[in-house]
Amino acid sequence: MSLARIRWMAMVLGVLGVAGVVVLHWLVFFWVGTERTMGIVQRIFYVHVPSAWVTFLAFGITALCGAAYLWLRDERLDWAAQSAAEGGLVFGAIMLTSGPLWAAYAWGTPWTWEPRLTLTLLMWFVFVGYFLVRASAEDRQAGKRMAAVTGVLGALLIPLVHVSVLWFPSLHPQPVVLNVEEGPTLDADMLITLMIGLLAFTLIFFSVLFFRYGLEHLRHQRALETREQPRAA
């Protein structure tokens, strides 16, 4: 895929994502009802849950592309894995800041070392390690392989994070959408707002992912032009 095509796709997804975000803000602040128990602060939910979804999606892509890279040794898979991991860290940071802000009001404390929060933080740090491993390896190719393994191992935490609230019920709310027994337990207006949020965040993520992938593409082109080995991290 050419750089121009990558950028075009990123732009299209970006425009759709920004439109989705505008609609999301309108829904969150003008349309959706205020939750009875928690009040206004519950609106953090519409940025916290989509960012959590995108974090898992990004780390999942990192693991899949990393595993495929270990098998096929195609540099493009490594570019995609690296780009997704960076996105996962950004959206993970959004999740890990918005959650405690809600908790500070709802629970009276921003953080408790309960299973879901602890596992999520651990997963985020594993993906910080993904970049540390790449950067610290003297042999770049070995660094890429070790990072791919780190990504695959880190993504094993995704299902654990999801089921942790079911296996170890604690302060963190139970799933309200992916509820196997009862189905979505949210009010219709809240569910619609959440779905728009999930869509908008996903579009924004893929838009920036394409731009980030384009950066690796460009770096590779420059390295070829200067007849150097590509030094993509």
């Binding site: 009040g39 960076e86 800041t97 918005s98 802000l101 809600w102 009001y105 731009f211």
Partner: peptide, 22 residues
């Protein structure tokens, strides 16, 4: 006004992090 501040900070941080990444 406390909950409004939490919502404001949460949304501001989210968009600042995203804009920063871009």
């Amino acid at each position: 006004l406390r909950p409004y501040w939490y919502v404001f900070i949460a949304y501001s941080l989210a968009w600042l992090l995203l804009v920063g990444w871009m």
